[in-house]
């Protein structure tokens, strides 16, 4: 009897609970929707701002204004017919690097330790076919390095034949300091000569090697 009496109460409670749950879900959905709409509204406002800013930039950078700036300061002009090339090959064919005589790029082996400098070949030269006497007298690892180089031994200004060993360091300094004027034409982007004479000697090699490749390809 009592159970029967409570049954209706339970029924009512569960119905109320279910209704409340449904209502809460609906409320949740509504609040999420509201948030979404607020975000959408913000997006629209931001788009409006973007539009205004774009319009302002467009107005300030209008073509007539750009043209005026160009005419006054930048002075760019339309490319002429000769500036168009068919492809990479034609472009490469247009580039003809200056042929540098190897005299501009003597190989200075900067890796040589300072104390051994007198006995190692500082400047490679075949102006006189006879190798420097120091090399002949003291064959060591430095000579092998010289042999492995791709550098075509190039003539240096004719030196007095077979300078004595103790004079050589003086001469090497002279060549290194005399180089900048010549090598400026060879490679304008190379570092300062006193700082990295070795880098220069290395960099000038591929440049002088390149024209050979192109001409052989043609």
């Amino acid at each position: 009897m009592s159970a029967h009496g409570f049954k209706s109460v339970f029924m009512a409670a569960s119905v109320v609970g279910a209704a409340l749950g449904c209502y809460l879900v609906s409320l949740n959905v509504a609040s999420e929707r509201a948030k979404l709409e607020r975000v959408e509204g913000k997006i629209v406002l931001a788009q409006q701002d973007i539009r205004v800013l774009q319009t302002e930039i467009g107005t300030r950078g209008r073509l007539a204004q750009l043209e005026r700036w160009n005419a006054r300061f930048i002075r760019l002009s339309a490319p002429s017919a000769d500036q168009f090339v068919d492809g990479g090959f034609q472009l490469a064919a247009l580039v003809k690097p200056d042929k540098h005589p190897a005299i501009d790029a003597p190989v200075v082996l900067a890796s040589a330790p300072a104390p051994e400098a007198p006995v190692r070949p500082v400047v490679i030269s075949d102006a006189d076919d006879t190798p420097p006497p120091a090399v002949a007298k003291h064959p060591d690892a430095a000579d092998m390095l010289h042999t492995a180089s791709y550098e075509k031994p190039a003539p240096v200004a004719v030196k007095p034949a077979l300078p004595p060993v103790e004079k050589r360091p003086v001469k090497s300094v002279a060549t290194v300091t005399a180089k900048p004027a010549k090598s400026a034409t060879a490679d304008p982007l190379a570092p300062l000569p006193t700082a990295a004479s070795s880098a220069k000697g290395g960099a000038s090699k591929p440049v002088s090697a390149k024209p050979k490749d192109i001409t052989s390809a043609r």
Partner: peptide, 29 residues
């Protein structure tokens, strides 16, 4: 509660429709 809109709903800002259409060139400027 079930189907209605909430109170703070704003009408008309959900789309960016200018008062008069834009005119653009063939590249869209």
């Amino acid at each position: 509660a079930a189907f209605g809109d909430h109170a703070g709903r704003k009408e008309g800002v959900v789309a960016l429709v200018p008062a008069r259409g834009d005119i653009v060139d063939r590249e869209g400027h």
